[in-house]
């Protein structure tokens, strides 16, 4: 019965080694998703303020648009992570 233990351990090590719970790529994807969520939250406030300003003065459309999409840079930076992370170790 005790002979099987070393064999079992090797098998267990092999399974954890070859397929981890989260692969690097899916971790990177999660990072992008979280960043997008945060950007969306930031844009909520800026967007409503921008619409308020545009309603008062049409000329503020350009400024409002730029300020609204600024947090979008968060997602772009997070997207870089996907390319930096290798597909497998």
């Amino acid at each position: 019965m005790f002979d099987t233990i070393p064999e079992f351990v090797t098998v267990a090590q092999q399974t954890t080694g070859s397929s981890p719970a989260i692969t690097p790529k899916s971790a990177a994807a999660l990072a992008v998703g979280l960043a997008a969520l945060a950007a969306g939250y930031a844009e909520r406030g800026i967007g409503s303020a921008a619409v308020g300003a545009i309603a008062e003065d049409q000329d503020l459309f350009g400024t409002g648009l730029i300020l609204t999409v600024l947090p979008e840079t968060l997602v772009i930076l997070a997207l870089v992570v996907v390319f930096v992370v290798p597909s497998a170790f």
Binding site: I46, G52, E56
Partner: peptide
């Protein structure tokens, strides 16, 4: 409350 929207409008009017 929608502070962002109202404050932006009010500031412009101010």
């Amino acid at each position: 409350a929608n502070y962002e929207y109202v404050v932006a409008r009010v500031r412009h009017r101010r």
